[in-house]
């Protein structure tokens, strides 16, 4: 289990991202706050449009117009990075924050051998010479499980299979020994058997290197396997955040409960799936109060007017009025 240190590797405070369109200003992220401790894997789950990928992009400063960070701050090891100028932010990306995306081909340039890409990245971020960098690249490929790395290093990206390519991307993300890695749906494009290998790899690397990871995915199974803590997002807000075991086994937030019940399982009786009525609201039509209230079976009058803040319940935090009165004294 992770021990909370004084300064978390990543700290997100009230992060708000807006997209300004002709008709309205859409709020893709609405005061999102969370911490990631050293060596911890934080899973971020949610359905499409919940804002999980936007969170990742906002942290690394890759929100393109018409989107903009409208409020809040992002701290990397205690220092603010969301207000850094473009050039400084570019250095943070890659050097201090590594990135792994869903499609390995977006991170690899198809025209260059992977040796060139790895060595270049290593040399940009460290002061190793060419030979040392190459040795390091081979060591990295070995570490991410590419067989015969001395030989494979001079291949082009298309000469690798999907799973191997994702391993190369992970090696690329590790080049500069970042303190924090954002993995956005890293296994979604892969087959189940390969997915399991990549999950195992990410887990092992974090443990060995003490790197923190924010794992963004829609697949609760991947989160359950990999993450230490999980944040469940809904309509640009965090609904519940806490240790993965508790959230998966005994979710508190009605949305999280519905979500867990909706996932068909490999264990137990194949019973009827829990279904949450309706769909997630579009960004242009988020209801007032709790964003989940139109779909919530336990909604009461307060839910329609007042947005619930995150309330501490044990190790967890949940944004739901149901846990307010009874647990008021625990709230920090």
């Amino acid at each position: 289990m992770t021990v909370k240190e004084a300064v978390p590797v990543l700290s997100v405070r009230d992060l708000t991202v807006e997209f300004v369109t002709r008709r309205a200003t859409l709020r893709a992220l609405d005061r999102v706050s969370f911490d990631v401790a050293r060596g911890e894997v934080l899973g971020v789950v949610g359905e499409s449009g919940a804002g999980k990928s936007v969170t990742g992009s906002a942290i690394i400063g890759l929100i393109d117009p018409p989107g903009r960070i409208a409020g809040g701050e992002v701290l990397l090891s205690g220092a603010r990075i969301d207000d850094l100028p473009q050039e400084a932010m570019r250095k943070v990306r890659g050097k201090r924050i590594g990135m792994i995306f869903q499609d390995p081909l977006t991170s690899l340039n198809p025209l260059y051998r992977i040796s060139e890409q790895l060595i270049e990245t290593i040399r940009v971020h460290t002061d190793l010479d060419a030979a040392q960098a190459r040795a390091r690249a081979i060591a990295l490929l070995d570490e991410v499980g590419i067989p015969a790395p001395e030989r494979r290093i001079d291949s082009y990206p298309h000469e690798f299979s999907g799973g191997m390519r994702q391993r190369v991307v992970i090696a690329l993300a590790l080049c500069a020994e970042p303190e924090f890695i954002i993995a956005d749906e890293p296994t979604t494009a892969l087959d189940v058997s390969v997915q399991a290998q990549i999950i195992a790899l990410i887990k092992r690397l974090c443990k060995e290197r003490g790197t923190s990871v924010m794992l963004v995915t829609h697949d609760m199974g991947v989160i359950a396997e990999t993450a230490d803590r999980v944040a469940v997002m809904y309509a640009g807000r965090i609904a519940e955040i806490g240790p993965v075991r508790e959230v998966v086994k005994q979710p508190l937030h009605p949305y999280a409960k519905g979500l867990m019940g909706a996932i068909p399982s490999l264990e137990g009786e194949a019973k009827r799936l829990v279904q949450i009525p309706g769909t997630m609201p579009r960004l242009s039509a988020i209801p007032p109060g709790c964003a989940f209230n139109p779909r919530c079976s336990q909604a009461f009058s307060r839910c329609h007017v007042e947005r619930p803040e995150l309330i501490a319940v044990g190790d967890r935090k949940v944004a739901c009025h149901l846990y307010d009165e009874s647990n008021a004294e625990i709230a920090a």
């Binding site: 191997m164 087959d191 058997s193 390969v194 399991a196 697949d219 199974g221 991947v222 359950a224 264990e267």
Partner: peptide
């Protein structure tokens, strides 16, 4: 290979190759 939601912590070493 299927990610395990029940978190029984089963060992997984059987998955090899592509």
């Amino acid at each position: 290979a299927v990610p395990d939601l029940a978190m029984t912590g089963k060992a997984r070493d059987g998955v090899k190759g592509e």
